[in-house]
């Protein structure tokens, strides 16, 4: 019962977030000086040409009408056509999305599979070799810029020792180096949090209860403390994944991958307003959805959140 109510509440919050962001984008775009119709038409265009473009864009209508039309288009997931190529923005986004999704999932997997176990072990065996290794790993992960790591990895494992392909996105192997470069820094953040969280949980009173019950140390740590320690880790992992799904502009540039990041970057270069606004709304929706899923997962692990 609690879970269903929590689910509905969080879903309404998701819708509200998307609505607020869409509204913000709508007005920000309108505040930016310059009439998009003029930009499209060019300096030499006649007044009629400009009027025709305005009608096509819908900017000839009143502001409230434009706003309603905008919200309606979001509901239909139709962000209009690119002002440069004329292609559907939705189509452009969904062409690029699988690549970004693959990259993000692989990047976050590195975070989950490496950082969480390493962080938890660091906490359990504090000030041991494990912990120092984790410390070096996370310091390096936070200090090394991902583009530099990407270039070094390319140089080492695609040029000097050609194990991985230099560019392209056809096979799984193409994604390994970019995912590593992308995931390393994220993993560092997750590791620090996992360690701090586990250290805190291990000092909680219920751990004493678990020991007093005669449970083995394995059960005390990896059942009782770990389940609680994972809570903040779930939240931060969701946020990290959300960021990655917005496209990794730098990594996509380094590895010449045609992902969302590059699509939006070129949209900005070319002042493709419809593409930019569609892109921002899309990223906002994806981000909210990931957070929503993380919240649901969180509430399964920690039922207490449902009533708070």
């Amino acid at each position: 019962m609690d879970l269903v109510r929590f689910f509905v509440k969080r879903f309404l919050r998701l819708l509200l977030t998307v609505l607020i962001i869409s509204t913000l984008i709508f007005f920000v775009i309108r505040i930016i000086p310059g009439d998009p119709a003029l930009i499209i038409a060019g300096v030499d265009a006649s007044a009629e040409d400009i009027q025709i473009i305005r009608e096509k864009l819908g900017t000839d209508r009143s502001l409230p009408m434009q706003y309603l039309a905008w919200l309606y288009s979001i509901i239909r997931f139709d962000f209009g056509n690119s002002m440069i190529s004329g292609e559907s923005v939705t189509k452009l986004i969904f062409e690029r999305f699988p690549l970004t999704l693959t990259l993000a999932l692989m990047g976050i997997s590195i975070g989950i599979l490496v950082a969480i176990p390493l962080g938890v072990m660091s906490a359990v065996k504090r000030w041991s070799l494990w912990d120092y290794f984790g410390l070096v790993f996370s310091q390096a992960g936070m200090a090394i810029p991902s583009f530099w790591l990407g270039m070094v990895l390319l140089l080492l494992f695609a040029v000097k020792i050609p194990i991985f392909p230099l560019f392209g996105s056809e096979t799984f192997a193409h994604y390994i180096l970019p995912a590593l470069s992308l995931g390393f820094g994220r993993a560092a953040v997750i590791l620090r949090l996992a360690r701090a969280s586990m250290v805190e949980e291990l000092s909680k009173e219920y751990v004493i209860t678990a020991r007093a019950k005669g449970l083995t140390e394995t059960m005390v740590k990896y059942k009782h403390a770990l389940k609680n320690a994972l809570l903040p880790v779930i939240t931060i992992t969701g946020i990290e994944l959300g960021y990655m799904l917005g496209g990794a502009i730098i990594i996509e540039q380094v590895f010449s991958l045609p992902g969302l990041g590059r699509l939006f970057l070129f949209g900005i270069y070319q002042r493709d307003f419809t593409l930019i606004q569609g892109g921002v709304v899309f990223v906002a929706i994806v981000f909210s959805m990931i957070n929503f899923l993380a919240d649901i997962l969180y509430s399964v692990v920690n039922p207490k959140i449902r009533v708070e």
């Binding site: 009173e205 005669g214 920690n302």
Partner: peptide, 24 residues
């Protein structure tokens, strides 16, 4: 000692809200 703890010697603590595991 683990074969005694919980099995032969058990313990009740002061603040149940802290000494019970919130996640189970």
């Amino acid at each position: 000692m683990r074969t005694y703890r919980g099995r032969k010697i058990a313990m009740v603590f002061q603040e149940p809200s802290k000494y019970l595991n919130p996640a189970f």
